[in-house]
Amino acid sequence: MSANNLVSINNLTVEFKTELGSVTALKDVSFDLPRNCITAVVGESGSGKSVTSNSIMRLLPDSAQTSGEIILYPQKSEPISITSLAEKDPRLRSLRGGLVSMVFQEPMTALSPVHRIGDQVAEAVLCHREVSKEAAWSEAASMLEQVGLTDVQQKMRMYPFEFSGGMRQRVIIAMALICHPQLLICDEPTTALDVTIQAEILVLIKSLQQKLQNSVLFITHDLGVVAQVADRVVVMYDGQVLEVGDVKQILKNPQHPYTCHLLASMPGAERRTTKESKQKNWAAGAALGGGTALATAEDGRQVREFVR
């Protein structure tokens, strides 16, 4: 198990206490993140994609009640049970931004508007390693070059407002990768970007993963993006995992009606599916509820089966 998987999520359930009673955001979610692999989690808003990734980073608010387990198997050290770490445990600090780091959706809000780009990227190094400021600065420079910025020394002295959205997202990626995390979480990293910039960032994330051989958890609702970056796909709906499998299995031969519905919702999908089948898939998708356990299909993928 631990030889091939970097992270195992087992029976994760997350409930939020609110004034109007409790809301279950995740129901018994289990899946693994293999090493050296890009796993995409797809689903619409409210399906629990971001709650899952925030649980791995332990970024959920106090109102969340978690049961189940997330275990991280770092390459050269003991496994860490993320869910049972105490809030003050020093391992939690080394985890965030060290072993596991994150790229957020909105590149403007994820950067501090009042600090220079170079200082923001170097800060990550200074937080996690005992190095001099100069060493951190030069490491930041080489990382920024790796993510495709030019005139790095000059750009490092600039502020985020002087950067375009695509350049900002490259900076965020550099910040996330500078401590060589074993897991990189990308939470809708291209949703706020133009289609041309999105294509550049997707190609960058894919090529960096191949170079660094780390694991990537990629959250998105766009199946076109999934097809282009992911090796494996986890389909989520209403806090549950519906289908897990290889990207080609899931996109070319989806088993779950909801996955069919997502595919049929893609703009331009009518060219491939008729309106009627779209409606039928939607009806099937809308009748979700009362799911049973994940069953393993013949080709090895896992599909949630339903009882009506």
Binding site: V195, T196, Q198, A199, E200, L202, V203, D222, L223, G224, V225, V226, A227, Q228, V247, K248, L251, K252, L263, M266, A269
Partner: peptide
């Protein structure tokens, strides 16, 4: 052409090549 080449295809076999 640039805009069209940047569209991510939902077919994993059609590789994105902006």
């Amino acid at each position: 052409r640039l805009l069209l080449s940047a569209i991510p295809s939902p077919d994993p076999d059609e590789k994105l090549d902006p």
